[in-house]
Design a protein around this nucleic acid. Structure first.
Lengths: 193, 193
DNA sequence: ATTAAAATGAAATGATCGTTTCAAAATTAC
DNA sequence: GTAATTTTGAAACGATCATTTCATTTTAAT
């Protein structure tokens, strides 16, 4: 009986992502979202509830795409060493392709909203947990295979890598020199061997 | 003949800093600044010109305080090793004391505004240059004293440290465990030896 | 075709945005 | 005290904010 949602929700989320990514949450107005999605105001509110709710959905969407890319890249890797390199290479590609210096949307959001919005704080804690688990798993494998050293626990190295990735993305906002960034990755990963 | 500025400019900047730091640039309204500084709207515009101009002054003020702390800490250090440790320890203290998870204002601003506001982009490029020069100088000394290795140039290590500091501050937004963070610093610095 | 339910369009909501205006008050030099 | 100059206070500016309202259109099942 009901008329069904006509627009492509995933495509709308993608369009909203681009705006939020470029302007940040507080810098994005509902008018920006109307313009970007070509949806009517009321349709947005019908489908997403509020600006914050839409943003949370955008964040999850963005994250799930990245997790998918990660998983795919890691699955193709022969060993733990390649897996870690793959993760950094994916970030490197994003940095080099990001010609308008937006940085990583999740990291931008962490710095903008974690201390202001409980739902974002919770998202970021879960995000960190997931990342640490994933990294710890890879490091742990690498240590069992004697590829990585055991001077630190896999969990400690995982936090180090998580921290390094954030720094790498922040650095990549201004520095797009591929060779310099590749060398930076080399230095970051040296401690594991 | 003129009536002179009655308020303490440095104190007003400090009050404005707290608001901008907590809420970010786009999240801070002129009303917030009026409330925080107890200044009149027109006084703010007379003295600072615009919200963006006030923010730029706040940023410089914040940076000069930190540079001063750095310089003082580094001057007290016996050698390059201690100098680097001092820098990270200062950041560690800020993280632990930052109970409302604001993070570093400069890094927050970098992620919020670098791609949107040319004056901020320029500020951030200068900031990076200064930091790299300072770090490169310390590393270079450490290499001459044979405290640090020479597998990479001082400039490459400086970029690595700059990147690591940013990651450290981003990590510190959610993670306040002092022992865990101290261990993280140890891992970060290991590559230098 | 009729009916139910949702999507849509356009306008309006009150609040807040950054900024300006201007007369009144305050201060300094003469 | 007078004149010069700036800081203030309070109100107002038009624009934009996120959100709501509601009548109209569109769709899907009966």
């Amino acid at each position: 009986m009901p008329k069904t949602e006509t627009f492509n929700r995933s495509q709308v989320l993608q369009q909203a992502t681009e705006v939020f990514h470029k302007k940040g949450y507080n810098g994005t107005s509902m008018q920006d979202l109307v313009d970007a999605t070509k949806l009517n105001r009321s349709s947005i509110y019908n489908s997403f509830g509020s600006k914050l709710n839409m943003f949370l959905e955008v964040l999850s969407h963005y994250q799930s795409i990245h997790n998918h890319n990660f998983s795919q890249g890691i699955a193709k890797s022969y060993n733990a060493s390649k897996a870690i390199e793959t993760i950094f290479d994916l970030h490197l590609q994003e940095i080099v392709n990001d010609q308008d210096h937006k940085g990583c949307m999740v990291i931008n959001c962490k710095s903008e909203m974690t201390n202001q919005e409980p739902s974002i704080n919770s998202f970021m804690e879960k995000n960190q947990d997931k990342m640490i688990v994933m990294l710890e798993d890879i490091v742990s494998n690498g240590q069992m295979e004697k590829i990585f050293n055991q001077k630190q626990t896999a969990n400690q190295y995982a936090l180090y890598l998580f921290s390094s990735i954030q720094g790498f993305r922040m650095t990549g906002i201004l520095n797009k020199n591929k060779e310099e960034l590749k060398n930076l990755i080399n230095i970051i990963l040296k401690v594991l061997y």
